[in-house]
């Protein structure tokens, strides 16, 4: 199992082919390894409705306060004096900053800052709008039918074997997906209508026993 990042179908297919192509060297079949990107989704009654909800979810995820937090994570500086609805700071990030502890470090803060500034200038975006644009894209947005078709397309074209859904609400965030999208996937014949077995291996279509003799 590989838990990976969701990306474009092209990048997904490239990663999928690369990793699956290595398995034969280890005596394994392509189906022995499943590649499942983490994805987010927003559903609506229509595609337009879903797009509207998605924009609202992004505004909720990136509150004015969170926008400054995200900015400070890149810049490594105290930017609490900046207006979330105003322009980005002129000063450069501090690459040796210890402002943020315990989070994965931004690999190239100067590069990210340059990209964010360019985006902000090109589209006339505020700090908060820039953070929303740069960090909060949902993977699948649309009506249940649109989302079901997109998921099927991704898997059918070998960009993934499936998906790890990351809902944005606790505890009800999966309800609409299970009630509205799963039945459509089942109708399309691409998702089970009952569990075939009781173990995780059986769900993933893997052999039950992987005992390796003589390892110790």
């Amino acid at each position: 199992m590989i838990f990976t990042r969701h990306s474009t179908p092209e990048a997904g297919r490239e990663f999928y082919a690369d990793v699956k192509g290595r398995l034969a060297r280890y005596g394994r079949e392509p189906g022995d390894l499943k590649i499942m990107p983490g994805v987010t989704y927003v559903l609506g009654d229509t595609d337009a409705d879903a797009q509207e909800r998605a924009a609202e979810v992004r505004r909720q995820q990136v509150s004015p306060q969170n926008a400054i937090l995200a900015l400070e994570q890149v810049w490594g500086r105290d930017l609490s004096g900046y207006d979330p609805d105003g322009p980005l700071p002129d000063l450069d990030p501090d690459p040796d900053s210890a402002l943020v502890q315990g989070r994965v470090r931004v690999a190239d803060p100067v590069g990210v800052a340059r990209k964010w500034r360019a985006l902000s200038e090109a589209k006339g975006l505020s700090i908060r709008q820039t953070v929303i644009e740069s960090t909060s894209r949902q993977s699948f947005v649309g009506s249940p039918a649109t989302v079901a078709a997109a998921l099927e397309e991704h898997v059918a074209t070998d960009a993934a074997d499936g998906f790890i859904l990351v809902p944005h609400l606790t505890p009800g965030g999966l309800d609409d997906f299970v009630d509205r999208v799963v039945p459509l996937l089942q109708e399309r014949g691409v998702f089970r209508t009952e569990y075939a077995g009781t173990t995780l291996r059986s769900h993933l279509g893997l052999p039950e026993s992987v005992w390796k003799a003589g390892t110790p």
């Binding site: 790890i164 859904l165 399309r188």
Partner: peptide
Amino acid sequence: KKQIHLAAH
């Protein structure tokens, strides 16, 4: 048809 695997985080 290639089957979809679903999981939740």
